[in-house]
């Protein structure tokens, strides 16, 4: 019995001593923090992705509280809504920024870009790009080892086995910039989501001369400037044999898409064209295949697509 009593008493004593130590320590080492940091942190999405350029949401919250102007600080995951909340907590104002999304600027799927050698090094895009130009003739294109997919914390990317290219899942992408930084070839770009998620971009980064680019990849941009001439809004620039569409200037008129001789200009989430294109290049249907997973947002359209294919089958 006495053993039990001693045990209980000694345990209680230890508890009391520990509590006193903890109390003293918490008072003595108390750090006075701006209470607004906690409030801002609460408003943030707590993804801790680092997309804002700070290590975690807490660090971002501290930075916003310290900053005089929120202009340079932006949480890509939360977007403008979150930034508005943060601004209201801090009594500041913030401009509306357009929501962005990651876009892959390479369409060098296996069938468009023949392999010229066999890579046998470590399975890592950065190792391969440090070693040489890549296992196809195009030294600017995707290496297909999925470092961007590994970098994505939001399950917004996967490797398409049939094309060997990564695919961005539109619904999950928060534009945190992780994949953009991971890609050693600088193929991913954050672009404006656009109205109804409609986007037009040049899906190529090949800066080689037209003939070389075309030889190494069927769907490469050859820098022919046909799109440049077509565009009436100054949205297209040509530099280093490569066209680039400025997404702030582009009005999504789609006129540049059909003029591209190599189908390097992609349009996403547009309704099908009324007139079928005359020069139906072989690459076009394949592009649709690649983007099917992206069209998740609009199940109706997908159904339509399926119906039409079914119809064709029936007709046959």
């Amino acid at each position: 019995m006495s053993l039990l009593v001693i045990t209980i008493i000694s345990l209680c004593a230890i508890g009391v001593v520990a509590a006193i130590i903890l109390y003293v320590a918490s008072k003595k080492f108390h750090v006075i923090e701006d209470p607004r940091i906690d409030k801002v942190e609460e408003a943030l999405p707590a993804a801790n992705c680092g997309g804002c350029g700070f290590p975690g949401c807490r660090a971002f919250a501290e930075a916003t509280v310290k900053a005089d102007d929120l202009g340079d600080l932006y949480c890509p995951v939360g977007g403008s809504d979150t930034m508005a909340k943060v601004a209201s907590i801090l009594g500041q104002e913030v401009e509306d920024k357009k929501r962005q999304i990651a876009v892959l600027r390479c369409n060098g799927a296996c069938e468009h870009r023949p392999k010229t050698n066999i890579y046998d090094g470590a399975t890592s895009c950065s190792v391969a790009s440090l070693t040489y130009g890549g296992d196809t003739g195009c030294e600017y294109g995707c290496l297909g080892m999925g470092e961007c997919v590994d970098a994505c914390n939001f399950n917004a990317m996967y490797m398409d086995e049939s094309t060997g290219l990564p695919v961005v899942i539109e619904d999950n992408c928060v534009a945190c910039n992780a994949c953009v930084e991971a890609c050693p070839k600088d193929l991913l770009e954050l672009r404006n989501v656009g109205p109804k998620s409609r986007r037009i971009f040049v899906s190529c980064r090949n800066e080689a001369k037209g003939a070389i680019a075309k030889k190494s990849c069927e769907v490469a941009c050859i820098g022919c400037s046909k799109c440049f001439k077509e565009c009436k809004f100054d949205a297209i620039t040509i530099a280093n044999n490569l066209a680039y569409i400025d997404d702030d200037k582009c009005v999504l008129c789609r006129k540049c898409v059909p003029v591209c001789p190599t189908n390097a200009i992609h349009e996403l989430n547009f309704p099908p064209r009324r007139e079928p294109r005359k020069d139906k290049a072989p690459a076009k249907p394949k592009i649709e295949n690649i983007e099917k997973p992206i069209v998740l947002k609009k199940p109706k359209e997908e159904v339509k697509d399926n119906q039409s294919t079914n119809d064709i089958k029936k007709e046959e």
């Binding site: 470590a122 890592s124 950065s126 190792v127 440090l130």
Partner: peptide, 8 residues
């Protein structure tokens, strides 16, 4: 592939 990674 130790050296491959060390280079990175």
């Amino acid at each position: 592939p130790l050296l491959d990674y060390i280079r990175i």
